[in-house]
């Protein structure tokens, strides 16, 4: 059977017929073709599928699309300005080499943006704790932590 789910993705209203068991990440990637959101583990461990729902970072592999009914979703595609100017957090990842292969990066950036909203000037310890739900197989985290500390300050300064 199919059900209808309606929400906003990156500011645009979408309404889609889905099977009840469709995961939010499948809808985002397979139906909406927003493939910047990744699937690493599919078991709520790695955070590659992290998207923003109503301003909070959540793992889109661990919820039904139906749980997003009426919500405002932001994926990595909706983070930069329409003219292509990077979000301060994205710019910080670029500047501080916070990525290597880039697979984990969309989830890292979305989680970092949510975290930085409440932590304009975080310590290294704060950042490492905030990354408990995001795994990276390349960087060893060091530059990710640096990026997020810088990105948080840049976000606060841009306010």
């Amino acid at each position: 059977m199919a059900v209808r789910v309606s929400f906003k993705v990156n500011g645009k209203s979408v309404s889609s017929e889905v099977e009840e068991r469709t995961l939010l990440v499948s809808l985002i990637r397979d139906t909406l073709r927003l493939t910047g959101t990744h699937v690493g583990c599919d078991t709520a461990q790695c955070g590659a599928c992290t998207v923003m729902m109503n301003g909070r970072a959540v793992k889109s592999c661990s919820m039904l699309a139906m749980q997003a009914e009426g919500a405002e979703i932001t994926t990595i595609e909706g983070v930069a300005k329409p003219d292509g100017t990077l979000h301060p957090m994205q710019a910080a990842f670029k500047e501080h080499h916070g990525l290597q292969c880039g697979f984990c990066t969309p989830g890292m950036v979305i989680n970092a943006i949510d975290f930085a909203k409440g932590n304009p000037n975080p310590t290294e310890q704060d950042v490492r704790e905030a990354l408990e739900g995001n795994l990276c197989r390349c960087t060893g985290y060091h530059n990710i932590v640096k990026s997020i500390m810088a990105g948080a300050k840049a976000m606060a300064a841009a306010k």
Partner: peptide
Amino acid sequence: IGDRQVRAM
């Protein structure tokens, strides 16, 4: 509990 994404849900 868990991580901040899990705590959000």
